[in-house]
């Protein structure tokens, strides 16, 4: 089960409203390479990992990704705080306002709703771990795009932190994949 710690993994205190950035950040909230997709992907794949190392690593990275979902949602909520209907409309969030007001809803920046098709579980450790490695790289690239879209240090600091976590997760998934390859672990049971 999960225990809640009433704090963020990394502090977020965004003082400047920025609706364009709120919209861009939806990529990491409800997009195909989002933190939400990552957390659900790893927490689903852990049931068919071949040994204790894989079960532990996918549980623990999946859990950290849940903390990242919380960070991204916090950033979006703070960037949208106090927004008028006109401001939301100007940033292209009029559709979001119509359906969800200022509430959070996991879509990508183009309004495409989150789908479980992003979770990508095959039950085959090699296919799953290699898809996880690629997902971490795609998320890293997305964070770089997001860092190119703002100059606000309140936004850049957590983005730089989250981007670096993708590097670490990628490295750990790769080590696990290489370990199974060297062990000649069969792909299927």
């Amino acid at each position: 089960m999960f225990l809640y710690e009433k704090k963020l993994e990394y502090p977020i205190n965004i003082r400047k409203k920025d609706l364009n950035m709120a919209k861009n950040l939806l990529a990491q909230y409800g997009g195909c390479d989002s933190e939400l997709a990552a957390s659900l992907r790893y927490l689903n794949q852990r049931y068919t990992m071949p040994d204790a190392k894989g079960m532990a690593l996918l549980t623990d990275i999946g859990t950290e990704e849940l903390a990242h979902v919380e960070m991204i949602s916090t950033m979006i909520a703070q960037l949208m705080e106090g927004a008028t209907i006109e401001e939301l409309s100007k940033a292209g969030l009029n559709g979001h306002y119509t359906m969800h007001d200022r509430g959070l809803f996991p879509t990508d920046p183009n309004g495409v709703p989150f789908t479980t098709a992003y979770i990508e579980t095959t039950g085959d450790w090699r296919a799953d771990l290699e898809s996880d490695m690629a997902a971490e790289q795609r998320a890293r690239a997305t964070y770089e795009h997001l860092m190119n879209e703002t100059n606000d240090p309140d936004v850049l600091a957590p983005l730089a932190f989250l981007r670096q976590r993708e590097n670490v997760h990628y490295a750990r998934f790769k080590e696990l994949r290489d370990y199974y390859m060297n062990k000649n672990q069969p792909n299927v049971d």
Partner: peptide, 9 residues
Amino acid sequence: IDLNLYLDL
């Protein structure tokens, strides 16, 4: 958190 991921492996 980070040492935990390392120690899993």
